[in-house]
Design a binder for these strands. Structure first.
Lengths: 148, 148
DNA sequence: CCAGGTTACATAGTGTTCCTATGCAGTCGT
DNA sequence: ACGACTGCATAGGAACACTATGTAACCTGG
């Protein structure tokens, strides 16, 4: 397992992290990308889940997710019900309003960024799709396998 | 200017933002990606700068950058000197320790992510480079031109 | 040359997001 | 049925970022 990972890949990954971080900051400032939006997206993608499962998927702590869900429930974007068979647990699901809010935010962000891509860069849709695929697959698997 | 941007691009950009946000969070948790690191990287890239210039490049407010620079100076990673000709201004520069810290963090992040890419995805170095290019060019230009 | 506007930065106060530590009720295995 | 584990809540605190505001220095027009 001592195959040296190519330096070019290491550098690229380092840059990837840096630019992803900057993009996230820029989006938070000029558009919108709250912690809540990530939760809505997770529930949209995976269906109803418990708090701990959500925390795991978003890679945050369980108390953080509890607080996030609490806020979203207050705004009417999530519904939290007791788990039918396990009385400790909860089941959190998107409400119609939450679903609508997610669509709205996605559209707003998507259109703003897409406009930038078209007007200020030479990148094609395929290249953006490649970027999305790289990021997605990087996050796809579970985080800790072998680091117990 | 009413050319409809293709829906596929809008969707891709929306996903791009979401995944970039998740990656940033994951990195912050398991590896490292503090606000300070972004500042170090900016100074490494652009050379010595004033506080306001740094804030503009990082797309944060000037007070936020003041605080960030203050912390980094305390840790010995930045040197802040009065501007030679404009006595209001400062010139912030990387110290040798700051430079070393940046290299260390970059390596740590790069190697960790690169290992993930190799072991858990099918993506090539070229694809990662494409992703980096998309993100970089998206952030390259100034933010507000036409939104005064 | 000097008032008024602008610029560079600092300070104060606040909100969001995230963490660790801890407690407690419910579940499960032996 | 007793101990270990799990799912969640609460408490306390740190990092990060904002707006509003103050102050000193620079610049410009009369």
């Amino acid at each position: 397992m001592l195959v040296a990972t190519e330096p070019a890949l290491v550098d690229a990954c380092s840059d990837l992290v840096m630019y992803a971080s900057r993009l996230t900051r820029a989006i938070r400032r000029r558009h919108e990308m709250s912690a809540g939006l990530r939760v809505l997206a997770l529930l949209d993608q995976h269906g109803p889940l418990g708090i701990t499962q959500l925390a795991h998927l978003d890679r945050c702590s369980q108390p953080t997710m509890s607080a996030a869900v609490g806020g979203l429930v207050e705004r009417g974007w999530l519904a939290k019900e007791p788990h039918p068979t396990d009385r400790r647990g909860s089941v959190v699901a998107l409400t119609d309003e939450g679903s609508a809010e997610l669509r709205r935010a996605r559209r707003a962000n998507g259109e703003a960024i897409a406009a930038r891509v078209r007007e200020r860069t030479d990148h094609t849709t395929d290249e953006v799709l490649t970027a999305v695929a790289v990021l997605r697959d990087l996050l796809e698997t579970d985080d800790d396998e072998g680091t117990p």
